[in-house]
Amino acid sequence: MKAYPHRHLLGIEELSPEHVQTILDTADGLREVLDRPIKKVPALRGKTVVNLFYEPSTRTRASFEVAEKVLSADSLSITTATSSVQKGETLLDTARNLEAMNPDMIVIRHSSSGAPHFLARHCRSAIVNAGDGAHEHPTQALLDALTLRQKKGRLKGLRVAIVGDLLHSRVMRSNVWLLTKMGADVVLCAPPTLVPPGIEALAPVTHRIDEAVEGADAVMMLRIQRERMTGGFYPSDREYHLRFGLTAARAARAKKDVLILHPGPMNRGVEIASEVADGPYSVILDQVTNGVAVRMAVLYLLLGGSAEAVA
């Protein structure tokens, strides 16, 4: 049996705990490559990956590109600002034209929820969701989990607070699925205007950040997504920071060895105070390194590697 049976990675929701485990173990095995003097293995030689980015991205795109290069895949990145999308080409036409060049995989970032599912229905390539609208961002949740597991030795039983703009956050959705599947104890926190209806079916919600942070093993801060806001979710950045931002005083309510995560990019002084972002328990930069390892694992497993080969 293949360790990872899915053809695509569209979301965390449809993965079993065993599949999550497989991806994380594979990432752990592959991370070592990044510390070698020559950071290259031939695992995906001859495979072609297209990174198709319809939204601005620094971390995710760079991270996929590095992962592809380390595994020796041939890759090309297309961003909409410099592509035929500017000339009005549809997503499907763009994808089909790229497919005519016979790639093995398309990594897609798109502002429309479900765009990767649409491609999966109409394309031959394996599709990896690099963030779709407010739906999911599975590799982000995987890299967060890898970071937590690395620092805490486990996911089961960890108390994790996810705080911030829950409404627009694909990172939150993927993380809630992943962490609850793996037995962590998740609490969500946001002002009521930024809580998506029905999310409490997946994890408890509080509007008081002090309560959310109390005794937490990890606090995951979410960015206020100004670009997705059509106005009026909270009165001012000042009040948001005062009532819902992670300050040093609030972080002190968590466990002594709390980990502070943020998927980036940060709005310093809004959802997170600089002293916390740059503080001793911030693992924000570890997240970035682990991002490469997780993406290597996903590429490797989807493009035909097996978990045993790298263990």
Partner: peptide, 13 residues
């Protein structure tokens, strides 16, 4: 429709 399904799908309700 706004509700739990829209929340999971990340679509505006």
């Amino acid at each position: 429709n706004e509700g739990p399904v829209a929340t999971l799908l990340g679509l505006r309700g």
